[in-house]
Design a protein around this nucleic acid. Sequence first.
DNA 1: GCCGGGCTTTGACGCAGATCAACATAAGGC
DNA 2: GCCTTATGTTGATCTGCGTCAAAGCCCGGC
Lengths: 249, 249
Amino acid sequence: MLNERSLSVAPDCNDCPIRHRAVCARCESDELERLEQIKYYRKFEAGQSIIWAGDRMDFVGSVVSGIATLSQAMEDGRTQMVGLLLPSDFVGRPGRNTAAYDVVATTDVVMCCFRRSPFEDLMTRTPHIAQRLLEMTLDELDAAREWMLVLGRKTAREKIASLLSIIARRDATLNKRGAAAGPIVFDLPLTREAMADYLGLTLETVSRQISALKRDGVIQLEGKRHVTVPDMSRLMDEAGDDADGGLLV
Amino acid sequence: MLNERSLSVAPDCNDCPIRHRAVCARCESDELERLEQIKYYRKFEAGQSIIWAGDRMDFVGSVVSGIATLSQAMEDGRTQMVGLLLPSDFVGRPGRNTAAYDVVATTDVVMCCFRRSPFEDLMTRTPHIAQRLLEMTLDELDAAREWMLVLGRKTAREKIASLLSIIARRDATLNKRGAAAGPIVFDLPLTREAMADYLGLTLETVSRQISALKRDGVIQLEGKRHVTVPDMSRLMDEAGDDADGGLLV
DNA sequence: GCCGGGCTTTGACGCAGATCAACATAAGGC
DNA sequence: GCCTTATGTTGATCTGCGTCAAAGCCCGGC
């Protein structure tokens, strides 16, 4: 049986994150085979809508590369982002056939998809898939609740610092860099408007607060998107989090 | 095999909501039996803390009666509620041994608990339990995301109307009343301060907005807590939701 | 080169909701 | 009865962020 530690020895597992990261890290090889038979890839361009809320949704899948956002809108246009999909994140809900949120590709995106009903069949037959999905969903729930604190109780400056912390952290884990001491460097994958939608702010406020953090030396900016964080603990301080405690995104 | 429709014919299933509402509506009877063997009840008084964030957490369970809240706090005291636990709601996370949030009994509460490790063992052996928990967790995730829109983008008045809608709706389903036309009546289970913590407001603003909704005839108040909603669709209008669309709490 | 359209920054001003403060009401305890 | 404490209401004032507006930057097309 495979487990997360032994993945590197399963050579043909590397082209599809679904298998080893998202869904079935612990599946028997014949289960992997069945997953393999129903999977397919889809590509989306930056800015393209992947799913509209309310649409019929006949697949589930996970992000292979690129970044997508998950958001909901009120009739008058107010928009709140409710999730940020990075590589290995899962989209779709077994047992529901319409999408609850808009999913938009922020950069070029490749997704690994499974038609929903065969996937559901497979899930009922292979307990590990349901357990892995449960684990992932609980992580997402924790992340959502962390965001509720950000949205409900933090100031604009703290919100921006929180977002930067999270992006820095996720970027570090994606690139396999540990919690290296010293400056942290990354590119913002979102426009000011997308950040505003994530944080419940306006794009003007986002811009002003980023300028303020730059002026105060908390971050350095090169161009509009390239960020250097000279002192990560300073940034987390600005975010209002206890130093080690955890943003779980 | 039992299913949700056949529960009423399983006479000894009625004293523990875990079995038929929360965890294992579709379990074989011997699985029910094993759940039965590891379950126990705990009672809490109104105002009492059930769990502190960071505590060791050696059980999972579900609310049998009463109302509890799930919240997180910053060091400076700012508090955000991230969940409202009504009867049949599940608490605890298989696979994690410390609590992530404070859980507080708002009214007197009875919980049905299972020690964590035997519950986890049972879960790996009985796929339906993991699948049922996945379903419940996905519902909670939807509710959390719905709440992110409320926190991030709604005005104080809309926030209050949203909360009242949700309480009215959950109260109706708990009491098996359908979507009866005509006035809806319920008691607020939360103090003004708890509502403020739920909505990311101050208690003064909560009080003022409730007074405003009363002045404008959207609700009627008897005492501080007893609410009558003469026209539910008017209330949902005030909440800024499309009439049928869904607050999923 | 010039032009046009995203994206971003910055300024001026106004308002929704926070803050500070006083008072009202109701429930226990004695 | 009175006093205390928890809870809720209302008013006056302050402020952080939204709104409106103008201009800068950068890239891609022609």
